[in-house]
Design a protein around this nucleic acid. Structure first.
Lengths: 213, 213
DNA sequence: CCGTTATCGATAATTTTTTATCGATAACGG
DNA sequence: CCGTTATCGATAAAAAATTATCGATAACGG
């Protein structure tokens, strides 16, 4: 069952929104939901929603829709929320510590195991119950525990070096908060969380608004 | 000159990376750069880069490429980095305060004017030289100063209400850090900075890696 | 001074993504 | 019990984005 592993990026980006909607206290929380309902609530095309859902579930029935609780379970399973992954964080500055202190990750199946920083003054410090360690312990821990996710929150100029080190330690997926473009070997995923990119989209929208009126 | 306002989202998302590369201390910082060079450094197709650059610049010359400093200026101008926009932030919790304290926004043309929070204990508190005010002052300030960007860092369940209030105050672009899907009228942009989405992509990548071996 | 070559810009082909259409299914009401 | 209707899933059409191809340009080396 479910060998349909090839889900497009766009679809993947919409799945959390569906889950969010399903969890929400939406209109009495009836037992069934339809793709049409979700589409309307989220401002999407209903066919898109149906197609997306088809790639994670096969329990949709005509005239009825999907069983809400089942669909939630299927989405969460597909997104890995029920199967927590360990991660290490490199760069325990302001942003890094904010992420360490953010309590919401376990819900999404992410567990920050420890943080690493080159600043010796941070060595041994705890943030939200998680230890900050020196960089030389990074590789050992990753290999020993089998960590596959690395979070980069260092200044842009050091991001590539950190990234290389992470990959060398067995990391397969990198969550990059640094303003830098990372070059990685085939097979490694880099997910950029770049605020400059978001700002570019915002700014461009305003420019368009003001130039057309 | 440059009335080519219709730039695709994907292009827009790549422009900051080009700028980043151009600013970087890349190989002696020669006077000229070519689309081919940039493409190689960033792991992109050279035609994509050339097409993207064509929408912000027209100074590319065959056999030579672009003048680095000129291209930087054109990109920065296009992205609005040289023309700062005011913004208000709603929700001065952990994440909100971290954003207030983040010093990098002016570089991207964003100036957080003030923050707002419904918690009376925060009223009047300053973070990084920026005041936190009570929610009832939101609309007045936005209208008086002409603020067009709103940043939402409140819990998901309050995001829609805050969003409505922002739009009612004249906001045209919303930067949404809450885990919620916002419904907005035509013409308003919502830029979601949703970590759940990023995590979904990371998790899916790992699943693919492990399922194919 | 002239052939070679790196590069741009434009156009065409391919791929991917989104949107529309249509038949099949099964609950519901009369 | 049967027609109506909401919904799904599949297939087709349209739109958008990516990638490939090609001619034109102008610096460079001989």
């Amino acid at each position: 069952m479910m060998s349909d592993r090839c889900v497009s990026k766009q679809t993947l980006q919409r799945l959390p929104a569906y889950l969010n909607y399903l969890h929400g206290p939406g209109k009495g929380s009836k037992k069934h939901v339809s793709a049409t309902m979700i589409a309307e609530a989220l401002g999407l095309n209903d066919v898109v929603v149906r197609k997306d859902l088809a790639s994670v579930s096969s329990s949709g029935r005509p005239r009825v829709g999907y069983v809400r609780s089942e669909l939630i379970k299927e989405l969460e399973s597909f997104l890995g929320y029920d199967n927590s992954q360990d991660a290490v964080l490199v760069g325990a500055g302001k942003l890094g510590q904010a992420l360490m202190a953010y309590g919401g990750f376990p819900q999404y199946g992410l567990n920050i195991l420890a943080a690493f920083d080159s600043d010796p003054r941070l060595d041994g410090v705890e943030v939200a119950g998680k230890k900050i360690l020196s960089m030389d312990k990074l590789s050992g821990l990753c290999r020993r525990v089998g960590v596959h996710i690395g979070i980069i929150t260092v200044p842009g100029e050091h991001a590539q070096a950190v990234c290389d080190q992470l990959i060398d330690s067995g990391i397969l997926a990198v969550w990059n908060f640094a303003n830098a473009h990372l070059l990685v070997p085939e097979g490694i995923l880099v997910q950029n969380e770049n605020m400059a990119v978001s700002l570019a989209l915002l700014s461009n929208h305003l420019k368009e608004v003001f130039s057309t009126k």
